[in-house]
Design a protein around this nucleic acid. Structure first.
Length: 485
RNA sequence: CGGGGCGUAGUAUAUCGGUAGUAUGCGUGUUUUGGGAACACGAGGGCCGAGUUCGAUUCUCGGCGCCCCGACCA
């Protein structure tokens, strides 16, 4: 029998139950599925092949969406001269505490220190200023896939590591209205990606001033709820106004031959989204992947008995596999010399949406057994119907995971008007729709007393006269409060 | 950076001031295989430094490292 205390290897069978210790549960899922582990340097993360396959899916989907909206990929250097980072006052103030600096290289101290990018606004905009001369050069729409380094105190795999992977898009426009339109457009790309592909429902909205990006005019965000009721910022899109354009002299001649500053946006989605994926769908048996994010959508497990019939089972299974692949479903045949039960548990830990079991009995009866990862439901299906049925199941699972997440969020979202109820609801892990007087001071006070922050001012929040849940002052609409990752 | 905890095999743990044991994982072989197989054999261990002691993995001190809770954060 397995030792239930052996929790730390991919081979381990024991996952801490969610309800018992959410944080330990989350890390167990990552280890058990073989997604990632800590690197040798403190706070770093090694993304293992199975985890990286999820990131590759993210890249594929987002690249297609970027292309649709005329965004091109490029790459800028990782090392930023310190002077560049200091150009925009709010920006440096926001990032100074968490940047890593190269002071020594080539055997001597550097004349100018180099910052390892915490984000690329400064270095990209320095270059953009040379690229842009005329309104005809606009809009400039650039994305890069990169690693960035932010020296965070408390690392957690995927959610917060000193180095992480992301895409960061940066655009320049001829007017503030056009920039704002682009920032909103890219937020919509993220919303659709979250909900359609990752099956994570999100609330799009605007950040309060104290939560917005360092140097931004406005920050838009997609906020998701995890199974413990805490919020995760899934992706953000910033309207940078002309703050950086002024600092980096991004100017162009307009139709009237007059110099104008550019209006900019930046927007990003990081490997943190994979943390969100894990926390949204997984259960006490392991990872649960939505079919659209699964690198293996169906795993075929042959039941082998060490006799001649094995050859027939395997060859029939290969036939079946080819038919399934014919429907653009990604598969894997697991014909390792392990007992079937061990394989079943392993693919459950890895979150593969559908499992196909096929052995001598099925061969004789001309059927196969299909098992759903999300519900555990088994069904026996005639061989010729299997590929199509898997396709249906994948669609059903994708939809069902999303709906389940929406239901959880609905049940853990409270519309409240009294401070006592508010405190209790936050403590119990809920989103609270409450009135806010719009001041930084009240926001800080609420955070101090409850740990909750304003996650966003939802775009669909209706105008509604009310009183601030904390200060009692007038408020025009409700905002979302929650504790956050 | 504040508060707490812990350093024994890949992992998880036990014992003991005097050959460091167990489980699991790993390797080889045989028998197995429809929900975590069994047996046999094998490889593998005390974070670093100083002190106390005849003798330290154990006791003391220092260092280093890790984990948890806060603040920070995509």
């Amino acid at each position: 029998m397995a030792n239930p205390q052996n929790q730390s290897t991919e081979e381990s069978f024991h996952i801490t139950p969610r309800a018992e210790d959410y944080s330990a549960w989350y890390l167990d899922i990552i280890r058990a599925a073989g997604l990632a582990e800590h690197g040798p340097a403190k706070g770093t993360m090694v993304i293992k092949p199975y985890g990286y396959a999820i990131w590759e899916k993210v890249q594929t989907v987002l690249n297609a969406k970027f292309k649709e909206s005329n965004v091109e990929n490029a790459y800028f250097p990782m090392l930023i001269p310190e002077s560049l980072l200091k150009r925009e006052a709010d920006h440096i103030e926001g990032f100074a505490p968490e940047v890593a600096v190269v002071t020594h290289a080539g055997g001597k101290d550097l004349e100018e220190r180099l910052i390892i990018r915490p984000t690329s606004e400064t270095i990209m905009y320095e270059v953009f200023s040379n690229w842009i001369h005329s309104y005809r050069d606009l809009p400039l729409l650039i994305n890069q896939w990169a690693n960035v380094v932010r020296w965070e105190m408390r690392p957690r795999l995927f959610l917060r590591t000193t180095e992480f992977l992301w895409q960061e898009g940066h655009t320049v426009h001829a007017s503030e209205a056009l920039a704002d339109e682009r920032a909103r457009m890219m937020l919509e790309v993220y919303r659709d990606f979250a909900e359609t592909y990752m099956a994570i429902p999100v609330i799009p909205g605007q950040k309060s001033d104290s939560e917005k990006f360092a140097g931004a005019l406005r920050t838009y965000t997609c906020e998701a709820m995890m199974q413990d009721g805490k919020a995760l910022q899934f992706a953000t899109s910033h309207n940078l106004g002309d703050h950086f354009a002024k600092a980096f002299h991004i100017q162009f001649l307009d139709e009237n031959n007059e110099q104008q500053f550019g209006w900019q946006t930046s927007w990003g989605l990081s490997t943190r989204s994979i943390g969100g994926l894990i926390m949204t769908h997984s259960d006490d048996k392991g990872l649960v992947l939505p079919p659209k994010m699964a690198s293996i959508q169906a795993v075929l497990v042959p039941i082998l008995i060490g006799k001649d019939v094995d050859t027939d089972v395997l060859s029939k299974m290969k036939e079946l596999d080819a038919q399934i692949r014919g429907l653009s479903i990604s598969t894997k045949i697991d014909d390792r010399a392990l007992r079937p039960g061990e394989k079943f548990y392993e693919w459950e830990r890895k979150g593969v949406p559908v499992r196909v079991e096929f052995g001598p009995k099925d061969l004789a009866a001309n059927h196969a057994v299909l098992v759903r990862r999300d519900t555990g439901e088994k069904e026996t299906v005639t061989l010729s119907d299997v590929p199509e049925r898997i396709g249906q199941l994948l669609e059903t699972i994708q939809k069902s995971l999303y709906e389940r997440a929406v239901q959880l969020r609905t049940s853990k979202t409270k519309t409240l008007d009294t401070w006592d109820e508010f405190k209790q609801a936050i403590e119990e892990g809920n989103f609270v729709l409450g009135h806010w007087d719009g001041t930084r001071e009240t926001e800080a006070l609420i955070k101090e007393e409850t740990g909750a922050t304003i996650r966003c001012i939802p775009f669909d929040s209706k105008d509604e006269v009310g009183m601030c849940i904390k200060s009692g002052k007038p408020s025009k609409r409700r905002v979302i409060f929650a504790k956050a990752y």
